[in-house]
Amino acid sequence: MSLDTRRTEPWLERLTAHEARQRLEHERGTRLTQLRAIDETGQAATEPLLSAQKDTIKRVLKEIEAAFTRLQDGSYGICQRCSTAIPVERLEILPYTRHCVPCQREAA
């Protein structure tokens, strides 16, 4: 592997597609468990706090599914805004992220 490859795609060295898929599956399972727990409380889903929680979980699930798509098309781990590699440490914490930290700050 050349030095240039290491600089442009460091996540390939430490986070394989299999590892990324495992992390995404874990995140998806966690969010689905959270949704079931909210549903099992028996409280009305129209209650503002529960409704907001469900909406947030559903949004994250969509982001996770989009990350699976990026994994399949080879763009996983690449910032969608600046096209640089997202640091592995960020992907380990937030495996479904679409942006590097500087771009995420600008978007917020």
Rank of each mutant, 00 (worst) to 15 (best):
A66V: 04
G74A: 08
S75T: 15
T97K: 01
I64C: 14
G74D: 07
V88G: 04
Y76A: 08
A107F: 15
I93Q: 13
A66T: 02
C79H: 10
I78F: 15
I93W: 14
C79N: 05
C103Q: 12
L91G: 02
A67C: 10
S75C: 10
Y76G: 05
L71W: 06
Q104A: 15
Y76E: 05
S75K: 08
S75V: 06
Q104N: 12
R98Y: 13
Y76R: 02
E106Q: 09
T84C: 06
A67E: 03
R81L: 05
Y76H: 08
H99C: 08
G74Y: 11
F68S: 04
R81I: 01
Q80A: 09
R70H: 11
D73R: 09
E65P: 00
C100Q: 04
C79R: 03
A107T: 00
R90P: 02
P102M: 12
E92Q: 12
T84V: 06
F68L: 06
Q80E: 15
Q80Y: 11
E89W: 01
P87A: 08
G74S: 09
I86P: 00
Y76P: 01
G74W: 07
I78E: 11
E89L: 02
Q72L: 12
A67I: 04
P102W: 14
R105S: 15
R81G: 02
C82I: 06
I78C: 09
S75P: 10
A66K: 06
Q80H: 06
P102L: 14
S83R: 10
R105M: 15
C79I: 05
V101N: 04
L91N: 03
L71D: 01
Y76K: 02
A85R: 06
C103Y: 13
L71R: 03
E92W: 07
S83L: 10
I64F: 11
A67T: 04
Y96W: 13
E65F: 09
R90H: 03
E92K: 10
R70F: 15
A85S: 15
I64D: 10
G77V: 08
I78M: 11
C103D: 09
R81Y: 14
C82H: 12
T69M: 14
Q72C: 10
E106T: 00
Q72V: 05
H99L: 15
G74T: 01
D73W: 14
T69K: 11
V101A: 07
H99I: 02
Y96A: 02
E65I: 12
E106W: 03
E65L: 14
T97W: 02
E106P: 00
R98T: 08
R70N: 11
V88R: 03
T69L: 14
A66N: 11
L94H: 09
S75N: 07
T69N: 09
L94C: 12
L91E: 00
T84Y: 00
Y76L: 12
C103R: 04
I93L: 14
E106R: 06
G74C: 11
